[in-house]
Each structure stands twice: as structure tokens, then as C-alpha cells.
Design a protein around this nucleic acid. Structure first.
Length: 512
RNA sequence: GGUCUCAUCGUCUAGCCUGGCCUAGGACACAGGCUUUUCAAGCCUGGUACACGGGUUCGAAUCCCGUUGAGACCGCCA
């Protein structure tokens, strides 16, 4: 009996009903065939939020049936990416064990009662159900070659009819002479398939338009399960209650329901999330924006900001709030507030959010986060000094990596043209004189009296006399070598007396 | 081409289910201003949206129908 039969029009009610009767079990099933995609991360996050909100179980399953394209390197990236974002899994492979080459060990090391959690390790399970379908004549061997199928598709396309397998091998009694079976197909019977999507409501399909589904590849050594079949078997055997995934899977859903019915499985709830879009409204692709999750980490984004941002792509809390922690997201998340339409990925807003997060971190936290990046770049700096620089630059930083461009002058005074020192139309002789005066005053200043407020007091007579711009601009330019920077007092405090005076003298010398 | 899905400011969205409180709210971005040695931040102000057409109703962004537009999918990938 399908559990989706009690579904209601009002989505909130489905949730409440269900959670009182059965524990929520959701899953994320990425395939390790490329860098961890932002879209995958968001789907994972929604599943995770849903599980955590309803005290359910979040399962991580690795869909690596495509041996040619799967790579353990990408599997590792999934683990790393999820962990970085703050998504932990209750069941699934153990990330640490995945690095060990001994395959026996890898297979045995998972958490959860429904493992193993890699599809490549579940072949015996698929085989059992495959045989069941074959024995019950619900599936059959197909001998058509790729070329035959290709030309079939081409002619269908030119006739303007639905692209589907013709069913040529469906009723074959004997194997065609000289041919080996290529794949196993599931027989699709004529019927209307309807399901109640938690986000979109009723969706129905006419199975006449779906060709017999390829469910496994036949290999000399055995077989290799294909997506729609493997997913169905896994979701059922792992007792998944809610399938939350991207909208691009809507067309797969009737196929999976058909297989579920044929195998006597419960039909889970389905919730199809809107897609993340590129600026041209097509499916998010790297042509327009960076799609690799971990790339954002490398770029200096915070996982909290990314999580917050991608959660808001297609979902919104009841109250107006710009910033939400993972915990707040968990307590407020529900599927009935998920949007139906796709959402364009707006990098500017992400960056703005990231800057918000950055400025909420304490200086000490930022030091901790920045140190590994400095080490990686081979920059050596005392923590105390780093903290002081960070303190004056953080308001200008939007990402962690902005530090390098913004704060480089603290380490090395850049080469700059003497014109930089000129304030408005003030003659350079006057500017030179001012710089000399500033350095004379500062030379007399005690080392221990070099804070922003001390310096301000020390230079006030001069700024009053000559005007702030005429003093402060050349001073700041001489100290930073840049058009834009923190205030001269802040820079001087960080630089200390000796270096401050040295830079002022360099500046003065430039103005002959 | 077929099937399915979607449609509120440029973008993310609130409101839609349960019609009136919506002369449509917030945020990003943009423009102007304040502050200011510079840049950034901050604060203030401003402009811009219910795709279109029909219905239902005293009343529609909200309900119904159609049109248009956009997207997804149509693999021995997942």
C-alpha cells in the first residue's frame, strides 16, 4: 500500500501526520563523478534540514554505479564539502575509512543498519530484485545495439513524436541469432501514473509515453544496475520516507513509481525542489558562475554564509531575516515554504552576506581562519600583528581572501608614483614640508604612545593649522602607497613608530 | 517535436492555500544625500514588480479558464 495515499492538499498537514506515525528518513545520493556542485550541496542541505527539523535520519548514499566516471577523489570531495558546510550524516560511509585503500575495510566501515551505502557495494541486493523482475516477466533482455537505438531515436525525432524505446525485444522468446543481450529492460504497462508532490501538488504522467526502462547493463562479468532501478531498490531497502531532490528528477519519478509498484515497495513522498539557475535562467552551469562548492571555500567564503545563502534560494523563513544560523534554519525549515519557481544564483548577494558574517566574527576567530591561508601562501607574520591588521581591515573585507589584496602594504610598502602624495592642488613643496613636519612630530612621540587616539592628539595641532586633508591624505598615501586604505592613524598604530617614520621619510624624499 | 513544470521590482523574496488590512512589504543591486583625508562600512531618501486576456465576486496579486513566455526532461549518465 502506498503511503502517499493519505496525502492531503495542505502540505503542512502531511508533514505533521507523517512525523507522528513514522520516523522521517531522507537521503542524499550524489554521484562522485565531478566536483561537488552547489546544487548538490543545496539539495543535501534541504534534506538535512528536513531530517533535523523532524528528528529524522539523514542518509548519505554514494551513487557510483557508473564505474567509468566515478572517482574516489570526488567521493572524498563530497565528504569534505558536506562536513565543511556543517552537514553530518547519520548513516552512510565513514569518511575516514574511505581513504584506506583496502577495499574490504572500506566496505565494512559504514554507519547505519542499511548498508553498505555505496551502490557499487550493493550489487547482490540489485541482483536479487533483478532476478525477481526477470522471473515475473516484468523485465526482459534487450538485444538492440546502440546504433539501432540511435537511429530509432533519430527517426522519432524527425517524425516529431515522443522519444521512446520501441519495445522491439519485449516479447522475444529466443535470443536473436549471433546477438548477445545488451541490457535488461523493465516492461512499462499502459496506465496513468499520478503522484502528489509535496511542493507542487498532483502531477500525472501517461506511461504510454515512456518506453521500457533500461534497468541494468549486461556485462560479460555480470551486470551493472542503472539509475532508475538502483535508486528505487536503495530507497526502498533503506526505508526512505521522503525523496527530496531537484526538479530535474520529476520525469524520473513515474519510472521509479512503476518499478516500486512492480517490486511491491512502498511509495515514498516526493518533493521536487526548484532548480538553482544561471543568470540566463537556465540550469546553473559553470559557464556563468562558479559551481564548485569547495571553490567557494578556497575563495574565502564562510560555510555559514554559503549555507544561509543556498537555503534562501527557493526557501524563506516566515519572519523577515537576512541572517540565520544552521540551528535557526533547522528549527524553522519546512517544505511548505519552499518555492516552486527556479532561483537565479546571485553572487553579489552571496558576497554581501559573506561580508556580514565576516564582520560578525571576532578578530581572534578571523586570525584562526586566516592563519592556514597565510601559511599556504608562505607569509610569515606574528599573530598579534596579524590581529591588529585584521582589526583595521576587516570592515573592508568581504571574503577572507580579500585580506591579501587589502593588507599587502602592511608587509611591504608598494612602489608608488609621487603624485599619489598630492592632495588636491596643494603644491608638492608644501606636501613635502607637511610630511617632514609629521615625521618630526612622530619621532618625538614615545613608543608607548602610538595608538590611534595618541596619534590623533599628537597631530591635531598640525591638522588644525593646515587642514585635515592636506595632512592626512599625504600621510595616509605615504604609509600605504595606495589610493585606498584605512586611516593614517590606524596604519601608523599597526606599523609602529619606526616603520611609520621610515615610510614618511620615503614619501618626503619622493617629492623633490 | 513530445511530456512535465513554472510565472510578484533587474535579482532573492513576503503576501496567494484561508479574496478586502496591498495606493504590494523586506533584502541585494542601483541613484541621491549625510558622515568623511581616501576607500569601505554605517545611516537617511528614492525609483522600479503582481506576464497578458477573459471570467467568478460588491471586491482578485490572491479563486477558475485560456494565451504568451521561460525552464526541465526525453541516455546502455545520475
Amino acid at each position: 500500500m502506498s503511503i502517499a495515499n493519505n496525502s492531503h492538499k495542505i502540505k503542512g498537514i502531511i508533514m505533521k501526520k507523517d512525523t507522528t506515525t513514522k520516523q522521517v528518513r531522507v537521503r542524499m545520493a550524489p554521484s562522485p563523478t565531478g566536483p561537488l556542485h552547489l546544487g548538490t550541496a543545496r539539495t543535501a542541505l534541504f534534506n538535512w534540514l528536513y531530517a533535523r527539523h523532524f528528528d529524522g535520519v539523514f542518509v548519505l548514499r554514494i551513487e557510483d554505479t557508473d564505474l567509468e566516471r566515478s572517482d574516489t577523489r570526488y567521493e572524498q570531495e563530497i565528504f569534505d564539502g558536506f562536513k565543511w558546510l556543517g552537514i553530518d550524516w547519520d548513516e552512510g560511509p565513514i569518511a575516514e575509512a574511505a581513504q584506506i585503500q583496502n577495499s574490504e575495510f572500506r566496505i565494512q566501515n559504514f554507519k547505519g543498519a542499511y548498508g553498505p551505502y555505496r551502490q557499487s557495494e550493493r550489487l547482490d541486493i540489485y541482483e536479487k530484485y533483478l532476478n525477481q523482475l526477470l522471473e515475473e516477466k516484468k523485465a526482459y533482455y534487450c538485444y538492440c545495439s546502440k546504433e539501432e537505438l540511435d537511429s530509432e531515436r533519430k527517426s522519432q525525432l524527425s517524425k516529431g513524436i515522443q522519444l521512446k524505446y520501441s519495445g522491439k525485444c519485449r516479447d522475444l522468446v529466443l535470443a536473436p541469432e549471433g546477438k548477445n543481450p545488451e541490457i535488461i529492460r523493465f516492461k512499462v504497462e499502459d496506465k496513468i501514473i499520478e503522484f502528489d508532490d509535496l511542493i507542487r501538488g498532483k502531477i500525472s504522467f501517461d506511461s504510454k509515453l515512456i518506453g521500457d526502462i533500461a534497468i541494468a547493463k549486461v556485462l560479460p562479468t555480470g551486470f551493472s544496475p542503472l539509475y532508475n532501478f538502483a535508486v528505487t531498490v536503495d530507497d526502498a531497502t533503506m526505508e526512505i520516507t521522503h525523496v527530496i531532490r531537484g526538479e530535474d528528477h520529476i520525469p524520473n519519478t513515474p519510472k521509479q513509481i512503476l518499478i516500486q509498484e512492480a517490486l511491491g515497495f512502498d511509495i515514498p513522498y516526493f518533493a521536487h525542489l526548484p532548480l538553482i539557475l544561471s543568470p540566463d535562467r537556465s540550469k546553473l552551469s559553470k559557464r556563468y558562475v562558479e559551481t564548485s562548492l569547495l571553490k567557494y571555500r578556497d575563495l574565502g567564503y564562510f560555510p555559514q554564509a554559503i549555507a544561509n545563502f543556498i537555503a534562501y534560494l527557493g526557501w524563506h523563513p516566515k519572519e523577515e531575516k537576512d541572517i540565520m544560523t544552521l540551528q535557526e534554519l533547522v528549527s524553522e525549515f519546512d517544505i511548505d515554504r519552499v518555492q516552486k519557481a527556479g532561483a537565479i544564483f546571485n553572487e553579489e548577494k552571496l558576497t554581501w552576506l559573506n561580508a556580514k558574517y565576516l564582520n560578525n566574527f571576532s578578530d581572534d576567530d578571523l586570525v584562526q581562519l586566516l592563519v592556514p591561508r597565510l601559511i599556504e601562501k608562505g607569509i610569515k607574520i606574528a599573530t598579534g600583528n596579524l590581529k591588529r591588521i585584521l582589526h583595521v581591515e576587516k570592515g573592508r573585507m568581504k571574503t577572507l581572501n580579500d585580506f591579501f589584496e587589502l593588507a599587502d602594504f602592511f608587509f611591504n610598502l608598494p612602489e608608488y608614483a609621487s603624485e599619489l602624495l598630492i592632495w588636491k592642488n596643494v603644491p608638492k613643496e608644501k606636501i613635502k614640508e607637511n610630511l617632514v613636519k609629521i615625521s618630526e612630530i612622530l619621532k618625538k612621540q614615545d613608543n608607548s604612545l602610538f595608538s590611534v587616539s595618541d596619534l590623533e592628539i599628537a597631530l591635531t595641532p598640525l591638522t588644525k593649522e593646515a587642514g585635515k586633508g592636506e595632512i592626512l591624505w599625504p600621510m595616509r598615501a605615504a604609509l600605504s602607497g595606495k589610493r585606498e586604505s584605512p586611516s593614517p592613524y590606524e596604519i601608523a598604530e599597526v606599523l609602529g613608530k619606526e616603520e611609520t617614520v621610515r615610510r614618511l621619510e620615503i614619501g618626503a624624499k619622493k617629492l623633490l
